[in-house]
Design a protein around this nucleic acid. Structure first.
Length: 312
DNA sequence: ATGATTTGACCTAA
DNA sequence: TTAGGTCAAATCAT
């Protein structure tokens, strides 16, 4: 009985979430169109700020509804402690004696709570640590597995998988949400630095050279083969190691077929790179965390969602 | 010394 | 049984 009631409640809430998200998506599309207009009149209309606020509100409402469902279903949206991420155990800092016991304790990830993105860019404002790479059947490129750098420090359960397709685009799937503070700070700081930039090379994604040293890869990745939104080509890129960002002052280039190449026909279970970047507010399919849009800076105009009550 | 990446082994879901 | 996801020792960079 209680289950029936909660299911009814969930059905209602689900509809509301969907409605909110659809609305947010539509507004984001409008915002994108405005941004695509460039620096002409779009910023004079005040429409951008209004749209951004609406998006914030939409996300906020959705999260609010989802959080209320946590109490009903015991789900945990975003914290990663749901079945979705139970596959992750406590991590590497476990002494040797428990390794055997831990074997088999993880569960394969379900596809729940995943967000997909197809993009030519890899940066998303967060700092990731690669923990695996796997050759995928019928796929030219291996799939790379990343977890949040602050997983152990802050218990952030965010994960992402990156796989390059034949067109050179990256199919990125995010699991869970960032709960870490540092990543959000980095994202904010990157924005505040004035421009979305932080770039990363696809060559750092897959280390598919015939066993080059890590050193060689880092040298290559530091100043070659950059990705960027064409809209931002003229924007400043800079290196800011304090933020842990991988930036460059070279003009961005589009992905070449060379990037992410995989010479390992056998299994492709080889190597990888590391990611770190800033958010892309213009992405066609952007996976955006609220922390990313709390402080957006568009040229001379600063937008702070903190001004608004995000909990309403 | 510390932290990140590589990569083969291990494990589970389908 | 197998493909995909994760672990963790070894290796490398700083």
């Amino acid at each position: 009985m209680a289950a029936t009631l909660s299911e009814h409640s969930w059905g209602t809430k689900r509809k509301r979430v969907i409605k909110e998200l659809v609305q947010g998506r539509d507004i984001a599309t409008q915002l994108q169109h405005l941004l695509l207009l460039g620096k002409t009149n779009a910023f004079d209309h005040g429409g951008v700020q209004e749209l951004a606020m609406k998006i914030c509100t939409s996300f906020s409402h959705s999260l609010s509804v989802l959080n209320s469902c946590v109490q009903i279903h015991g789900d945990d949206f975003g914290s990663g402690s749901s079945g979705l991420l139970n596959s992750q155990d406590s991590g590497e800092s476990v002494n040797r004696s428990t390794i055997k016991a831990r074997r088999g304790c993880y569960k394969r990830r379900k596809t729940l709570d995943s967000r997909k993105s197809v993009t030519s860019k890899l940066e998303d404002g967060y700092s990731w640590r690669k923990y695996g790479q796997k050759g995928i059947l019928n796929s030219k490129y291996p799939r790379c597995y990343f977890r949040c750098t602050y997983k152990h420090e802050q218990g952030c359960q965010a994960l992402k998988q990156v796989q390059q397709d034949d067109n050179g685009m990256f199919n990125i799937t995010y699991f869970g949400q960032h709960t870490c503070k540092k990543s959000a700070d980095i994202a904010k700081a990157a924005q505040t630095l004035s421009e979305p930039d932080s770039l990363l090379t696809s060559r750092t994604l897959y280390n598919t050279e015939p066993k080059l040293s890590q050193n060689e890869h880092r040298e290559e990745s530091s100043d070659e083969q950059l990705f960027s939104d064409p809209l931002l080509d003229s924007e400043i890129s800079r290196k800011d190691e304090d933020l842990g960002l991988k930036l460059s002052d070279k003009p961005p280039m589009f992905l070449s077929s060379e990037t992410g190449r995989n010479n390992h026909e056998d299994r492709g279970d080889t190597s990888g790179g590391y990611l770190c970047g800033s958010p892309n507010p213009y992405g066609v399919d952007v996976n955006m965390d609220m922390s990313l849009i709390r402080s957006l800076k568009f040229d001379n105009w600063d937008f702070h969602c903190d001004q608004f009550d995000m909990n309403n």
